[in-house]
Design a protein around this nucleic acid. Structure first.
Ligand SMILES: [Mn+2]
Ligand SMILES: [Mn+2]
Ligand SMILES: [Zn+2]
Ligand SMILES: [Zn+2]
Lengths: 144, 144
DNA sequence: ATACAAATGAAACAATGTTGCAAATGTAGT
DNA sequence: ACTACATTTGCAACATTGTTTCATTTGTAT
């Protein structure tokens, strides 16, 4: 679905900044950081507007914020913005070597049995380690 | 185990700042934020020293950092610092009402089947919602 | 007691995120 | 297409969080 449609459905005003964010996320199959989203924008980029729009899109459920660490934050589309639909239902892998975040669509978030009285809203699974690309590089380096 | 023993075992120098952090975490059964740890210290509190010591303790595996959001970070002991031992093996619950973090010792982190080539190091499960205390308050408020 | 590496604390900096406000813009109705 | 109005933007200024540098202090082993 195209950015302006997504915004319309959620009854959010169609502005250049919001469209740029959605487009950037649609054009990549990995979650993106602020810097990565910014780099895809033509100069006209305002930090404050970005923060406010990410907030709006996250609250609306269009974007899902993945917090790896306080310095490492990634965003992905959580609605049906592309064939690879996100409903925040899968785990995410953080590579400690190259700092990339990969969606592990195979690893679904299970149903949790919360203690009496607790109310469920949302959950995140972050798995840390070394990604395929980096572990390959490390292995071949050892063989030199 | 007492703070100085923990530091000795890990071959880390025994300093007042580090002991204060470990003591604070031992005296509470919930993970604590920097502010909460600080409030337990007698005036002599230096922000820079805190950051460095938390870093040292985390790297050594004594403390486990729980990142809920970039603004909400909690710390807990991950070694056998008290009867409630942490090996980062359980899920954590974040209450969106009172912003507390509860250890869900019942919910163990499962073994994940990573895709070919990925190497596992560590993982975190964060479940968000409303804690027992807050959901009780909300319920009783509705009945008024 | 001595020696030395490690840790501390102060200052200065850097990065990240927030708030207030006037100007600009999106949207709905005419 | 024009108008009206609420929302959004962009700027400045601020707040919070975390880092780096370096002289001084402290912990620990000898
Ligand atoms: Mn994903
Ligand atoms: Mn815990
Ligand atoms: Zn990698
Ligand atoms: Zn609560």
């Amino acid at each position: 679905m195209i950015a302006s449609e997504i915004l319309k459905i959620h009854e959010i005003k169609k502005t250049p900044g919001r469209i740029a964010i959605i487009n950037a996320l649609q054009q990549n199959d990995q979650p993106l950081s602020e810097t990565e989203i910014k780099s895809g924008m033509n100069e006209m980029y305002d930090r404050i507007t970005f923060y406010r729009n990410i907030q709006t899109l996250t609250t609306a459920g269009i974007v899902h914020k993945i917090v790896i660490d306080n310095t490492i934050i990634k965003y992905e589309l959580s609605c049906s913005g592309k064939e690879h639909t996100h409903h925040n239902e899968h785990a995410h892998f953080y590579c400690e070597e190259c700092h990339s975040v990969t969606c592990l669509k195979q690893i679904k978030i299970p149903e949790f049995n919360l203690p009496e009285g607790f109310m469920y809203d949302d959950s995140d699974i972050i798995i840390k380690g070394t990604c395929k690309k980096c572990s390959h590089q490390i292995t071949t380096k050892d063989l030199e």
